Simulated assay, not measured.
Amino acid sequence: MSHTAHIRSHRKPRRSASKVAMRAGVAGGVLSTLAVAGASGSASAAEPVTQTLELPALTADLGAQIAESADATQQAAANYQLQAERDAAAAKAAKQAKADLAEAKKKAQAEKKAAEEAARKAAAERATRSSERTTLSASADVETSTSASSSSSSSSSTATGSAAAVIAFVRAQVGDAYVSGGTGPNSWDCSGLVQTAFKQVGIDLPRVSQDQSTAGTQVSLSNLQPGDILYWGGAGSAYHVGVYVGDGMFVGAQNPSTGVAEKPLSYDPPTGAVRVL
């Protein structure tokens, strides 16, 4: 036995023929593949080839987005249409309200005019009745004034002529309202009543009490005659007037609580009197 027999040989082991053949086949296949690839590369260099990539996932997302956009557009259109309908309804309502307001104003004006006309007719009717009342009273007084008795201011006296007409007029207004500045036909103040009463017989008196208290001849209260003007306060500064109607009575537009009333001289004794008839 050799002294080197136990040492392994450093020579490479010999490959088997099958492994060498397999490796040669593999190498040949690789070279063939490279050759084919090279040929394909040359062909590609000679003539470009267009390739289409299909992206199914991206196409689906885009479709969903388009659908959502279409829905949003449709909803916006519906909102616009609804708003347009609301605007049209509001405009129609405003137009109708304007027409109703105009009609209401027209109706109110017509009612006001009718009310004013009715008031005018009523006032005219009251004035006519008052005039008729005055005429009847004056006629009755004239017919019954066939005799007279005179003594003192408190004694019975019967008016005739113009005095009877004045007295009939003021008595016809008894019960009417007292209104400051009133000159009839249904409301009076004291001097307005006296002035209008004497106007019935063609005598124009001043408008206010102060001037009426000096419009005629001053007479004593003990020598009064029906138709004399009574005044309260000083002559030329009187604050109230009335008409003496005989039998110690007078008629005057007293105050808002009593209105036009017939009262005895003792109710409110006058200061003086003037005679214009």
Rank of each mutant, 00 (worst) to 15 (best):
T144F: 10
C190D: 12
Y178V: 14
T128W: 14
S180V: 14
E125H: 09
A27D: 08
S187D: 04
S237D: 13
G242F: 01
T214I: 04
H6F: 11
E111L: 13
H10R: 06
A88I: 12
V20Y: 00
G38K: 00
D141L: 15
G161F: 07
A99P: 00
A93F: 05
Q75F: 06
S187F: 15
S139E: 07
T271S: 12
T214N: 02
K113C: 10
R120Y: 12
G234M: 15
D189L: 09
F250M: 14
Y178M: 10
R171V: 10
A235K: 12
A70S: 13
Q195T: 03
T134Y: 11
L265V: 04
Q173R: 11
Q195E: 06
S213M: 05
V274K: 02
G246W: 01
A27Y: 02
S257Q: 13
N186T: 14
G227I: 02
G29N: 03
S154H: 11
G184N: 11
A94I: 07
K105G: 00
T217G: 06
H10E: 05
D71Y: 06
Q65K: 00
Q254H: 03
G181D: 12
L58K: 00
P270W: 14
K106S: 05
S149Y: 11
N223R: 11
S150D: 09
G272Y: 04
A76G: 10
V179Q: 15
N186I: 09
D141I: 06
T128H: 14
Y80Q: 11
A93D: 04
V260K: 00
S16C: 08
A140C: 03
A119T: 10
V241N: 01
G252Q: 06
A89G: 06
G202Q: 08
S152P: 09
V243F: 03
S222H: 03
A45Q: 02
T59S: 01
